[in-house]
Simulated assay, not measured.
Amino acid sequence: MSREQRGLWLGVVGVAIFALTLPMTRVAVGTPEAPLMSGLFVALGRAVLAAVLSIVFLLATRAPWPKRADWPALSLTAGGVVFGFPLLTSVAMRHVEAVHASVIVGVLPLATAMAGAVLHRQRPAPRFWLCAGLGSVLVVAFALLNSGQGGLRLHPADLLLLAAMACAAVGYAYGARLSQHMRAEHVICWALVASLPVTLPLAWLTWPAQALPATAWGAFAYVSVGSMWLGFFAWYRGLALGGTVRVSQVQLLQPFLTMLFAVPLLGERLDALTLAFGAAVVVTVFLGKRAPIDTRTPSTPTLSPRSPA
């Protein structure tokens, strides 16, 4: 396999793990009528459990300390995928179904590609940006039609999900950048360990006071070990090998995998409107990803010496 092909297949593995995140989060937090874990505990607690696993892994692999120049990028990675995305989605998933949220996730491939293009100074063709805008409009239109507010107003949970997509895109882009010279596994591990002074005390304060069913704890274990840890092993390595802009295309699979998982796990149903909007978002992302990308770094033009008269 070529380097790009290996990156794409690793990206598929990561996306398959991530696709269960929203349904499992829904199982853990419950519904407004039957609440279980708080969204804060799910987000922070899963980061603590993954950080403990990360410490063991870093010691076992004798990982070197990150260089001083890497800490700003690690901080942005942690801000996006350790704090931003988990916190926002965990709070939102108590109020919306996983099938509904999966359509909002449909904008993530374009958001990731846009963040990667800016960070790596790549220049996609105008068609890419046109498709990016169209995909975003479709996602917002779907959220408006399903808001249940009796008017053209977004549900607060939809706003949280859209903000979560932005956080994830930034975290993915900076994590992929670090994976160019660090082991991909070490990137997420150091981001989790660096966040531990904040996540540990907050997780302790938000620990559930009531007894919870085993299904809630099982879902919490999945988002801790799978979504917050192992999924990033494959995902960051795939982005590093195949390029952030290209490999983010495999996230096209995530909304549909999430829908398929949500039906048997949560008893949710798929309607024609959801499927139609999900397919439309995928088409816009597919067209945008096929647009040519200029990977050359812009350079300052030099003046040639004037020829003698």
Rank of each mutant, 00 (worst) to 15 (best):
S2L: 10
E4R: 12
G7A: 11
W9Y: 06
G11T: 01
G11L: 09
V13S: 07
V15L: 10
A16G: 01
A19D: 03
L22H: 08
P23G: 09
G30A: 14
P32A: 13
E33K: 15
L36S: 13
G39I: 10
G39F: 09
L40M: 10
L44E: 06
R46P: 00
R46F: 08
R46L: 12
L49Y: 03
V52T: 06
L53P: 01
L58M: 02
A60H: 03
T61H: 02
R62G: 07
A63K: 06
P64F: 01
W65M: 13
W65A: 15
P66D: 10
K67Q: 14
R68G: 07
P72G: 04
P72E: 03
S75T: 12
G80V: 04
V82H: 05
G84K: 04
P86V: 05
P86D: 11
P86E: 13
L88Y: 05
H95A: 12
E97F: 02
E97D: 11
V99Y: 03
V99W: 05
A101T: 04
V105E: 13
V107H: 09
V107W: 06
L110K: 10
L110Y: 04
A111H: 03
T112H: 02
T112G: 10
M114V: 15
A115D: 06
V118Y: 06
H120N: 14
R121A: 14
R121N: 08
Q122M: 13
P124V: 11
F128M: 08
W129A: 13
W129Q: 08
L130W: 06
L130C: 08
L130R: 10
C131F: 02
G133C: 06
S136A: 15
V139E: 07
A141S: 10
N146C: 08
R153M: 11
P156Q: 15
L160A: 15
A163W: 05
M165E: 13
C167Y: 04
V170D: 04
A173W: 03
A176E: 06
S179Y: 01
Q180H: 15
H181I: 10
R183Q: 12
E185V: 07
H186C: 05
C189S: 11
A191P: 00
L192Q: 09
V193R: 11
V193S: 08
V193Q: 10
S195L: 10
L196M: 15
P197N: 11
L212E: 15
A214W: 14
T215S: 15
T215K: 14
T215Y: 07
L230P: 01
F232A: 07
A234H: 01
A234V: 01
A240W: 05
L241Q: 08
T244S: 14
T244W: 08
T244C: 14
S248E: 06
V250P: 00
V250Q: 00
V250N: 00
P255N: 02
F256R: 09
V263F: 00
V263A: 02
V263W: 00
L265G: 06
L265S: 09
L266E: 12
E268N: 08
L270M: 12
D271F: 09
A272D: 05
L273I: 07
L273S: 11
G278A: 09
V283S: 08
T284C: 15
V285T: 06
G288Y: 00
G288M: 02
R290T: 00
P292N: 11
I293G: 02
D294N: 14
P301Y: 09
R306A: 07
S307Q: 11
A309G: 13
